[in-house]
Amino acid sequence: MDLNPLVLDIVIFALTGISVISMVRVIIGPTTEDRLIGLNLVVAQIVGIMVVVAVKFNRSIYLDVALVYAILGFVSILAIARYTGGKEVQK
């Protein structure tokens, strides 16, 4: 199905704006967990941007990048949450 390419451009810009809003939580969050929530949201939205860009360029192989980023974002969030406990929770 061919779509007006302007629509996909608007979607990409809007998603970028949304991810800027969720970066605010990363900057001002009082605790580390708040920053992790922001990181989780930013990863999800950037994967969305990547998929929409791949659909816009109509290249199937560009989707590899999105899947690689999904895997590695999960691994990095798991590492940060697991290896840096607070006061008494120490590995």
């Binding site: 967990e33 992790l36 929530i37 989780n40 999800a44 999904a70 999960f74 969030i77 798991l78 949450a81 697991r82 406990g85 607070g86 006061k87 929770v89």
Partner: peptide, 17 residues
Amino acid sequence: TSPVASHIIGKRAWEEG
């Protein structure tokens, strides 16, 4: 994986007290 990530963050906060 997305529910697992939020579960990990919640668990870290819960165990930190």
